[in-house]
Design a protein around this nucleic acid. Sequence first.
DNA 1: GTAATGGGCGCC
DNA 2: AAAGGGCGCCCATTAC
Length: 623
Amino acid sequence: MNVSLDYETFYKKKDYTVRQMGNWRYCNDDRFDPYLLSAYDGERRWVGHPRDFNWEAVRGATLLAHNAGFERAVTRRLIELGQAPDWVLNNEWHCTADMSSYLANVRALDSAVEVLEGRKLNKGIRDWMSGKTWDDAVKAGKADELKRYAIADTVECHGLWTNYSGLWPAFEQRVSDLTIHQCARGVCINVDLLNEYVEKLRIVIFELEKSLPWTDRGAKPSSPIAIAEECRKVGIPCPPLKKDDEEGHDRWVATFSPRYPWVAATGQWRQLCKLLASLETMQERLRPDNTIDFSLLYFGAHTGRWSGGGSGLNFQNFRKVPLFLKNNFVVAPPPGISARDFKAWIAAETDYAIDIRRLLIPRPGKKFIISDLSQIEPRVLNWLAGNLEFLRLVSEGMSPYEVHARKAMGWTGGKLKDENPDLYQLAKIQVLQLGYQSGWEKFQSTALTEYNVVLNEQQSRESVETFRDGNPLIVNLWEKLQAQIQLSGNRKEDMELTLPSGRSLRYRHVRRELRSKRNSETGNYEKRFTFVATIGEKRKEIYGGLTAENITQAISRDVFCGHALELEAQVSDVIFHVHDEATNEVDQDVTVADVEHVMSKCPEWMPGLPVAAEAKEVPYYTK
DNA sequence: GTAATGGGCGCC
DNA sequence: AAAGGGCGCCCATTAC
C-alpha cells in the first residue's frame, strides 16, 4: 500500500521558514506548529490534526511525500514529542519532488504536475497562511478551504507516484534515499573554533567598514553608487564590471589600491560578509550533539548533479583557501606564489587564518577519510570520443595531461610533471578548459584567473589550435552532437541523449532562432541563428560543445553516484559529498585503501573507462 | 512593504 | 563559424 503524506505547518515569510532555517532548526523552534496532516492511500482521504491520525493505518505502508526530507523531519519531531510512533521513519519512504527533478527537471509540485501532466494547479491559500495559525484560518472561515487545499496536494503527490514511479530507476531511488538520510544525519562541528572565528570576523568587518569613506555619509558598504561617486570625487575611473571584464577589474584594483585603500576593501567586505553569514548560519543550526543538518538537492542541476542549496547554507561552496589576517585586516598571498614561498609568506605576513573547512570534523571516536575521483571529466570525455589510445595510456597509469602533451604538444621526454612542469601546467589547462569548444578569449582569461598563467592572444590562439588538432575525436564528438541538434531543431522536436548508465538527458523543444549576439572581434551586436532548447523551465542556447560538456558532467555524476552508494553500503557513512569527492566518517580500523578500493571501481555499464581515485585521512574537512 | 533582478563571490 | 558548463547565497537596487 502506498500512502502519501503532507503536513501543513505554521510559517511566516522572511521570518520563520524551512527554506531559510533548514529542516531541523525549523522543526525545533518555539513557533513550530504542524496543525494539519493529510493522507491519501489511493482511495481514502484523511485530513486533520496530526495527533488525531491513526498511525496504525500506515504500518508497513510505503510512504510518499513531495519533499520527503521535510515530512520526515516533521515526523521525527512528532516522535520526539510523543505524538507519533517511532517505527514510522523505518517505513519505506519516497520523495516525489526528487522523482520530478529526475523526470522533468522541476521540483515544485505545481511545476511537476504542469510539466508531467499538462495541468495547472491552484496555488490555494498557502500564501495567505503566512504568519497565520490554524485558529486564524478557522476564525476567517477558511478552515475548509485549507483542508481541501492540503488534501488536493496529497492526492497529486500520490498520483505522480502512481503514474511515473515506474520511470524512476531503482538506482536513482537509492541515490535519492541516501541524500535524504545524509542531510538529516548532518555533520559534527568544532563549536569552540566556530565561536572564535565569528568573534574575530566581526571585528575585522567592523574595522573594514570604518575604512570606507562613504559609510560615514550613510551609504551601504558595497553600494555601487557610492563607489562611483567616490571615484568621481578623487578623479579616477569607475571600476569595470567584473562579470564583463575580469582582467580590467583586477587591473583597476591593482592600479588604484595603493593610493586608495578602499579600492581593495569593497571586494574584501563582500568576501567577509559571505563567510560570516555561513558561520552564523552554522551557529544557529547547532543541535545538542554539536552537529548541524544541511540541505542537498538530489538532481538539483539538469545534468543530474546535486545542488547545494535550499536551506540558507550551501555545503558545495565552502572556500578552499583560508582567509588570512594581519592586525585584523585581510591580507592575500601574492598571485602565483609557490607552495614553499606560501608557507614562508604565512609565517611572515599573517597572524590569523579563518579556515571554514576546519569546522567540519568527525564525530567523537570517528575519523574522516576524504576521497575524490581523479580527472573524472577528461576521462569520460575521451571515452565518449572513442579515444582508445588515451584510455589505454591512462589505464596504464599515465596522467591524462601527459597523454595530451605527447599526442598534441610534441612532448617525447620522460615523466612530464617532473621534467617540464611548465608544459605540464599548460597541458593541464588545455585538457580541463578546451574539451568543450572554448574559444581563445575564454581560454586566456581562465588561464589567468584560475591558474595564474599569463598568455598573450597569439599563445592563447595557438593553444586552442593545438588542442583541436591533437584531439580530432573530441572535435568529431562536438560536430556529431551539433548535427543532432540541427536535426532536432529543423524537425522542431525534443532531443534525447542516452547516457551509458541508461538514463538520458532531454533538451525539449529544440528550435532554430535568430538572436542578437555581440561579436567579440568588432564589439557590435549582430543577428545570428542559434539553436535553443528548454532546459528545466528556461530557454537556453545549445551547441555541440555545450552538450558534450553536459553529458560528460552527467556521466561523471552517474559514476560517482555508484561510488557514493557503495561507500555507504560497504565502508561507512558518507557524511557529505561535492560532485566527485566524498567524505566518509569511519571507525578507527578503516583504512585509506578500503576507501580507494571502492572509489576506483569502474561501473559495469561503462566498460573501458579508466577510473582512479585518491583518498586521505584527515582530522577535519580539507581540500 | 515585498518581490525580482543583477553583480559579486564561493565551489566542482 | 563560434560559443566551457553546472550550481546557491548575500547584498544593493529597482520594480511592483
